[in-house]
Nucleic acid binder design. Structure first.
Length: 424
DNA sequence: TCTGGGGTCCTAGGACCC
DNA sequence: TCTGGGGTCCTAGGACCC
């Protein structure tokens, strides 16, 4: 049987775990980046009770936050990733779950080697309590025949307090469970597909389950059929993590809009350097570099435009200079003067291992080895002295600041020795 | 003033081949 | 008068996920 573990309001729970005095109080985590603003990413149930929702722009709910003394944390992803790894390690050490795997920063799947309903519930409760005792992160557990049904079970574990955070969904209870399950909540059925199904008279998961497979194939794609099979208890989805990412992206929304090509060049250069660094961190090279731009979709009074261009390289590379050059040339391809730009980014794709690079017929292999030495030096300087210690000239020495100046990041209690919690 | 960022997979259509 | 049939590969866009 499949076990699904889902951390409750994960980012908010991490902050509460690191600030025990906030236990039982309204806490919100928002991804305030250098551009300020941001949206609510996670919130405790006390914050939800105030009417706050995931996705609310912070500036729209500032009064509500202030009036109710809500603590707002800027999101600190590396910290949450670190806590998630600890959780993973803790469960593996417990040796109850087989083939335990991370699905996302706050979700995990594994297998429990029994069919007995009581034993399953007991095992899941044991795991849940161990996690909570070791990390202070509350979790919900679902157990069923497939990943998708496991997530259905977890939904019940979360929504019905009687389950005490653990729901086992055996084969003979699937139809009952699906009958009370909104179609839009099914894993794999998103905001576009749910209305399409509703138009065909499918409102809940049981109606979807009872629909002929051929109809599903016609209305949805092959993934829809996989979801349908999973609901029938037939495993059809794999969650294996690929060895290396197929694309790497870095993008930012600016606090202030700009129409200036030179300014955009310097920001795109920053992003290109950032993605190149991520690429080298996973020992990869890429063959294509894309840049994208978009205006502010919330400003209906302004002309809207959004576009992306891709530059192909002759030889796969992880050299910041090549990637930056390619990103700038892609930017120049899509840039249109006279528009107010709000967001830009760089995406790397066609990614392969840096161990076997196919050279250009006329290229000097010496050059590649020089490049990787230079990049290694650049990375170690950056690690030691910070992101801006060594820069490409293209990143600019002085550039218009499109971000807010009063930006403050949050503490790294679990990843930086200087931020470690002091206990008295 | 202020509305995120980072991924995967599938498909239709176009370009090409013989 | 009449202009086929069978493939592959790539890409942009759209769906989904967290």
């Amino acid at each position: 049987m499949i076990l699904h573990i889902d951390c409750n309001t994960f980012y908010a729970s991490c902050e509460v775990a690191l600030h025990p005095d906030l236990q039982g109080k309204p806490v919100v985590v928002a991804n305030c980046n250098e551009a300020g603003g941001g949206i609510i990413l996670a919130l405790t149930k006390e914050a939800k009770a105030l009417g706050l929702k995931r996705g609310d722009p912070v500036f729209k709910v500032t009064k509500l936050l202030n009036d109710n003394n809500v603590t707002v944390f800027p999101a600190n992803l590396p910290k949450y990733v670190d806590i998630s790894r600890r959780l993973m390690r803790i469960v593996r050490e417990q040796n109850i779950v087989v083939n335990f795997q991370q699905y996302s920063v706050d979700e995990f799947f594994g297998e429990l080697p029994t069919d007995d309903k009581d034993q399953l519930r007991e095992a899941a409760l044991k795991i849940k309590h161990h996690i909570e005792q070791s990390t202070d992160i509350p979790v919900s557990c679902g157990v069923s025949l497939t990943y998708t049904l496991g997530k259905v079970a977890t939904w019940y574990a979360k929504h019905y307090p009687g389950y005490e955070g653990v729901c086992v969904l055996p084969k003979d209870k699937i139809e009952v469970a699906l009958n009370n399950f909104p179609i839009a909540e099914v894993w794999g059925i998103g905001r576009r597909t749910a209305p399409k199904l509703k138009a065909n008279g499918i409102d809940n998961a049981l109606q979807f389950y009872n629909t002929d497979e051929r109809h599903i194939r016609r209305w949805l794609n092959i993934n829809g059929v996989c979801t349908w099979k999973e609901l029938h208890g037939i495993p059809s989805i794999s969650i294996d993590n690929p060895e290396r990412q197929q694309s790497i992206c870095h993008s930012r929304t600016f606090a202030y809009m700009t129409s200036d090509l030179n300014t955009l060049r310097t920001y795109i250069s920053d992003y290109a350097v950032a993605v190149a660094r991520k690429l080298r961190a996973q020992h990869s090279v890429c063959l294509t570099v894309s840049a994208f731009l978009s205006t502010n979709p919330f400003r209906e009074d302004l002309d809207q435009y959004s576009n992306m261009a891709t530059t192909k390289l002759n030889v796969a590379t992880a050299d910041s200079r090549d990637i930056c050059k390619a990103a700038i040339s892609a930017l120049e391809e899509i840039y249109k003067p006279g528009l107010q730009y709000k967001k830009a980014g760089v995406i790397l794709s066609n990614i392969t291992s840096d161990e076997n690079i196919q050279f250009d017929l006329f290229q000097d292999p010496e050059q590649t080895s020089k490049s990787s030495k230079l990049m290694a030096a650049l990375d170690s300087l950056t690690d030691k002295y910070g992101m801006d210690s060594v820069k490409l000239a293209a990143q600019g020495f002085e550039k218009p600041n499109l971000n807010l100046s009063n930006f403050q990041s949050s503490q790294n209690q679990s990843t930086n020795i200087n931020d470690i919690i002091k206990a008295k």
